[in-house]
Amino acid sequence: MYYSTTYLSPVGTLTLGSDGEHLVGVWLEGQKYFGGAVEKELTARDGLPVFSAARDWLDRYFAGEKPSPSELPLHPIGGEFRQQVWRLLCQIPYGEITTYGTLAKELAAQMGRNSMSGQAVGGAVGHNPISIIIPCHRVVGANGSLTGYAGGIPTKIKLLEHEGADLSRLFVPKKGTAL
């Protein structure tokens, strides 16, 4: 059984999902892939300790603190490849950005491969079910494009601005499939 509650954040209402012990999702209203790989219905239940811990984490994050994803019992649902990408995302420092290509190179090295598709990594980043806490908003295109955020480009910009990231070299693409 899976449970849900909501959290009112500066970037809109977030839906938190849990299996009762672990956080399985943090989704923005209207987000692409809302609900992720959770195949069962989410039952509203506010009082779970994991939800209290997630709310506290989010309160601290939006207050300008730098809580670590490792502080929470995260259990995003996805295959091993996606899990590897999501673990890499958790290593991106607060307020910093990286590219899909850089993540692909890091993952290839971890797997003992010569190369890895940046597009494959981008697909896994885009399906991250634990928005904000697993910081997929910190990933941009190699050319500085802010493409590819399931919660929407304006939200990605707000989160990066909140963290004090250097946005001077970044831009919103005029067209693309990930807008």
Rank of each mutant, 00 (worst) to 15 (best):
R87I: 10
C90D: 05
W86P: 09
K32W: 06
E163V: 04
P173W: 14
P76E: 13
L42P: 10
L88V: 02
T147S: 15
H75Q: 14
H127A: 11
R82S: 15
E96H: 11
L48W: 00
I97C: 10
A104M: 06
C90K: 03
S18V: 04
F62L: 09
R55Q: 02
Y33A: 09
R55Y: 04
F51L: 03
V11K: 00
I130H: 07
I134S: 01
P154N: 13
F51I: 04
N143A: 13
W57F: 15
C136M: 00
H162W: 14
P67S: 09
K174A: 03
W57M: 12
Q110E: 04
S68M: 15
K158D: 12
A142P: 13
L107D: 03
V38G: 04
D19N: 13
L170C: 09
L179G: 13
M116W: 04
T15P: 11
L103A: 07
L159V: 02
I153V: 06
G20Q: 03
F51R: 01
E161V: 04
L16F: 03
L48R: 02
K66E: 12
R60H: 11
A63P: 14
V121S: 02
S4D: 15
R82G: 15
H75D: 15
G151K: 01
L14I: 10
Y149P: 00
Q119S: 14
I157M: 09
S18Y: 01
D59R: 12
S9L: 09
T15N: 06
S145A: 14
M1S: 02
G123K: 11
M116A: 10
